[in-house]
Computed example of a mutant assay.
Amino acid sequence: MSDPILSAEDVHVEFEARRGGGRARAVDGVNLDIAPGEIVALVGESGCGKTTLARTLLGLERPTSGRVLHRGTPLAYTSKALKRFRRDVQLVLQDPSGSLNPRHTVYDAVAEGLRIHGDVPNERERVADALSRAGLRPPERLFLRFPHELSGGQRQRVVIAGALVLEPNVIVADEPVASLDASVRGEILALLLRLRDELGLAALVVTHDLGLAWNIADRVAVMYLGRIVETGPVEKILTAPEHPYTQALLSVLPDAPGSPVVLQGEPPDPTRIPSGCRFHLRCPVLASGAAATAGVDGACRGEDPGVLAGGTAVQAACHYARAVSSSTGQAAAARP
């Protein structure tokens, strides 16, 4: 992989718990690299820390510890540095209706970023170009329309145009098609892929939908209870996942073979993360006795499998997966 354009380096983000005291570890040690022109899907259940990590990569949350790097340089949190950073790293939210001011025309919505950054020369031309790149042609016919006059797909394209007008090199898209009809989702995903190919844009796509990840991502990072537990190229992770959590998420997709894996209970409270593997309380491999057969049940309950490194390597934070991989590798080495 080329040098990352955006990275999280051992990032932790903690918040004061609303009830009962203590601190909630929303992000609990994450390394994540995004290369130029690469689309990374960050997937997991609601509440696993995906959005907090995305906000931290955008500079909207400051890490409790660790750091965010842009083009290899640690992010500074001065107003001037953040303003410069946000020209290059733009956010696309899941709800275009909530992202657009109902009193602003399409033109004003797209031009807003240019005006905030004092970058108004050739404003009309740049707004038109951004709308065209977002698939709204001819752009001039939309300039004076208001959000309520547009379809959901058109509104999402306007939001994307508002990000593109500043010519960023990274887009962070938080559930970019969750609020859209199924017939429109494919169009927006195709648009993101085309922007990557034409402009070299990198993207972090935050989603709970592994099907979406399959259609758009180059690489997948699976998050559980504040930590990435499996990562690798999309084909590997979505066809041969090693972590039981990833396997459970995949099992409920419509075309998945076998029966869905129903996880017991809810994710633990982030103020009281369990010892050992943070997934062990819900792990079907541990519950079935397979981990005991492999001799790792004690490790599952008592030893932290550790924080995964960044980069493109296939990694899984799972004692059982490592034991199986090790025994398979030893068996292969023993063959004549």
Rank of each mutant, 00 (worst) to 15 (best):
T246V: 07
V13S: 10
D269A: 01
S151Y: 05
D197H: 12
L212I: 15
Q94E: 15
S97F: 14
D218L: 10
V172C: 10
G118F: 00
P284I: 02
V89Q: 10
I188N: 03
V89R: 08
Q154W: 00
L238G: 08
R335S: 14
A299K: 12
H104F: 09
V285P: 04
G258R: 13
D129V: 02
D108H: 11
N31Y: 00
R278P: 03
I273D: 00
I34H: 01
A41S: 04
P96M: 11
T293L: 13
E167F: 03
C300Q: 05
P257E: 13
P257A: 14
G265L: 10
E16H: 11
T207D: 08
V262K: 11
G59P: 00
E167N: 15
H208Y: 02
L286W: 01
L195V: 11
A323K: 10
S183L: 14
Q154C: 11
V205K: 03
A317Y: 01
E149F: 02
I34W: 03
I216A: 06
E38S: 01
I5R: 10
R62C: 04
R71E: 15
A24T: 05
P305V: 01
E198S: 13
D28L: 05
I228Y: 01
V172D: 07
G118R: 09
A202N: 06
G295S: 09
L58V: 08
P4M: 13
A290N: 13
T328G: 15
D174L: 13
P4E: 12
V106F: 01
D174K: 11
D269E: 06
Y320I: 03
H319Y: 06
L201I: 06
A248I: 04
L189E: 06
V177P: 13
Q156D: 10
Y77D: 09
R219D: 06
T207W: 01
P268M: 06
I160G: 09
A309I: 00
P96Q: 12
T105Q: 10
L204F: 02
A8S: 10
V170G: 09
